[in-house]
């Protein structure tokens, strides 16, 4: 991947299927700022309140993503040349 901000900003618009939960598309939500120089930090307080507010938080993140300008860096990695791409081996 190139670190260049090569693509022009893309205006986003959430066009999800109307029957889909607004936060359903969130696979992982790592809250907050990780300002720790030695280890990966994860917020755990959400774990204990997530049943009540989890859906709302995920939906809010999606809404923020939908209403913001984004940049998708250009990809200058060489395209695979040995046939069809394989299915991803990992999820996040």
């Amino acid at each position: 991947m190139s670190g260049r901000e090569g693509s022009p900003p893309i205006e986003t618009g959430l066009e999800n299927k109307p029957d889909r939960d607004p936060g359903a598309g969130v696979l992982v939500y790592r809250a907050g700022t990780s300002a720790n120089c030695s280890s990966v930090g994860s917020s755990v307080d959400l774990l204990f309140v997530t049943a009540a507010v989890g859906g709302a938080i995920f939906a809010a993140a999606m809404a923020a993503l939908a209403s913001s300008k984004v940049t998708i860096p250009d990809d200058d990695a060489p395209a695979p040349d040995d046939g069809e791409p394989k299915a991803p081996e990992r999820d996040p």
């Binding site: 598309g25 790592r30 923020a64 993503l65 913001s68 300008k69 998708i72 991803p88 996040p92």
Partner: peptide, 24 residues
């Protein structure tokens, strides 16, 4: 400006006021 990293399963994005978010 939100930076998005495309992945075969969806994308990663760093969303201000939220954090790192992976979408399908």
């Amino acid at each position: 400006m939100i930076r998005v990293r495309l992945e075969p399963w969806g994308a990663w994005a760093r969303v201000p006021e939220h954090g790192l978010v992976a979408i399908d």
